[in-house]
Simulated scan of single mutants.
Amino acid sequence: MMELYTDSSPNGFKATIALAELGLPYRLRHVRIEQGEHRLPAFLALNPHGRIPVLVDHDTGITVFESAAILRYLAEKTGRLLPAQPRQRWAAITWLQFHAASMGPMLGQRVHFELADGGANVAATAHFRHLCDAALATMDGRLADHVYLAGDDYSIADIASFGWLHIADLVGFKLDDWPHVAAWYARVAARPAVQLGITLPAPATGA
Rank of each mutant, 00 (worst) to 15 (best):
E3S: 14
R27K: 15
L44C: 11
H99G: 15
P86R: 04
M2P: 14
M103H: 13
R51M: 13
A189P: 01
A144D: 01
L170G: 08
N11Q: 09
H166E: 13
D7Q: 02
A101S: 14
G61C: 07
L81K: 06
L149A: 12
E37M: 11
G163Y: 01
D152Y: 00
Y185W: 14
G36K: 01
A150Y: 01
E37S: 09
A101N: 13
L74H: 04
G50K: 06
A84S: 14
M106E: 10
L136G: 02
A183R: 15
G141A: 12
P201C: 08
Q195R: 15
W184V: 03
T63I: 07
L4W: 03
M1C: 03
H166F: 14
E34K: 10
T205V: 09
L115K: 13
Q97V: 02
L96Y: 02
K174V: 03
H166A: 06
A126Q: 15
V147N: 06
K77W: 01
D59W: 00
V188E: 04
L82Y: 08
P192D: 12
E3A: 10
A116N: 06
G23W: 05
R72S: 11
K77H: 11
S161Y: 00
E34Y: 02
A168Q: 04
W184F: 05
A144L: 07
R80A: 14
R89S: 02
V194Q: 06
F43Q: 06
A186G: 00
H146R: 15
W90M: 09
R72T: 13
E34R: 12
F43W: 01
Y73C: 05
P48K: 08
A42D: 15
A42I: 04
R87M: 10
G118P: 05
G104D: 09
M103N: 12
A123W: 12
D57K: 04
F13I: 12
F43R: 07
P192A: 10
Q85S: 07
L19I: 06
G79K: 13
S67H: 05
L107E: 03
G206T: 11
H49E: 12
